[in-house]
Design a protein around this nucleic acid. Structure first.
Lengths: 206, 206
DNA sequence: AAGAATATTGAATGATCAAACAAAAAATTG
DNA sequence: CAATTTTTTGTTTGATCATTCAATATTCTT
């Protein structure tokens, strides 16, 4: 009995609840994400959440993990398809602006998580992990062209611009997905010397 | 009696409450900002808030306005002291990273407001106004060097990087105020041609 | 200083929501 | 099929917090 037999139902319900939480999260944001609503979205009764999870925080945490996982898997997939370093850079940038979710509601949801991360060390840990991963991906693309301080600076700039564009998306819904991606790539190219661009295998000029 | 005689007390209390809200906001964030705490911070009893304001939202809104106003006034002051366009660019960047408030708590607080702006059209309006002002300030600095699409791109990049750096500050408290400012200016310089930099009156090279 | 107007208090109200729980329903097992 | 375990439900509890309000205190007017 101690070695709990993980029944199928248990795993199914957990996943259903996490997916339901994710759907509510992307449309209502963290603020509108109540236990009752999550359960309703999953088509289950309100009490069920406490049965499968330690509490609301538990679901939320796993939901954010789930969200990060699909994002990172998508980036990994794009990276495998890329050939030149510049292609991989493009893959990272595109992966950080998922076409399906780059909208005001999702941007806002993600923003709420960033805001919550200050109070919640678990979220903060997830976020640091995500940033480290991004930095290391970027480093591997940019190393053929940059080193030392300029490499560090480029990594910071790219990361910061991604965050900033998401934040703007939450604020005024202004810049479309394609414009955001194009802008990112154009700006990265703009602070690289012609020789450095060649080192990354960038073919098409701006 | 209809033409309400605005007694001093009324104005004093309103200001006290807004300042108190601002202090709580910068240290506790939007989440910890309860009516009771605001009043306590102001050294008044909990009921008083409703006497001078329509409700909590009202105080919050005016508090955000107050926050924006001191930020913009500080930038305006710096701009008056600047001579070359590059000086004015520096003034804008420095003004957007107020030394006293560029810390994790304040960054988080500001982030919560961005998150709330999606639900609250009033906040969204304030934010759009702030962004427009920033864009117009930047345009006036950069026009001697850039035009058309490149000008637009530069304005977007600078704005987006400011937001992104604040967001990072909320997340990991990593980049210090001085590093943030230095990074911003270095990156701006990096995507300007030597001739464009000269047009802005930039004296000291990186 | 008396009385009117204004300012302030602190407790009560009501709404929201997460979490706990007891009991019912369904599934599984012997 | 009866016993037992798993799953689900709907209600209740307790906490937090904005808002209201009647009562009290202070200030102003004449």
């Amino acid at each position: 009995m101690n070695a709990r037999k993980r029944s199928r139902i248990e795993d199914i319900r957990r996943e259903e609840l996490i997916l339901a939480a994710h759907r509510v999260f992307l449309t209502q944001g963290l603020a509108g994400l109540t236990t009752a609503r999550i359960c309703a979205e999953a088509g289950l009764s309100p009490g069920i959440l406490a049965y499968y999870f330690r509490g609301k925080e538990d679901v939320l945490f796993q939901m954010v993990r789930y969200n990060n996982r699909i994002l990172m898997e998508d980036i990994a997939r794009r990276l495998r398809a890329a050939v030149t370093p510049w292609d991989r850079l493009t893959a990272i940038v595109e992966g950080n602006f998922p076409a399906a979710n780059y909208n005001r509601a999702a941007a806002n949801a993600w923003l709420s998580v960033c805001a919550a991360a200050t109070a919640n060390p678990e979220y903060a840990r997830l976020q640091r992990y995500f940033y480290r991963r991004l930095a290391s991906n970027l480093a591997s693309c940019l190393k053929p062209a940059l080193t030392g301080d300029r490499l560090e600076a480029a990594i910071l700039t790219v990361g910061v611009m991604i965050d900033g564009l998401w934040l703007r998306r939450a604020a005024d819904d202004g810049t479309s997905r394609d414009r955001a991606v194009a802008h990112m790539l154009a700006q990265i190219a703009a602070f690289l010397e012609p020789g450095e661009q060649r080192a990354l295998g960038r073919s098409a000029p701006a």
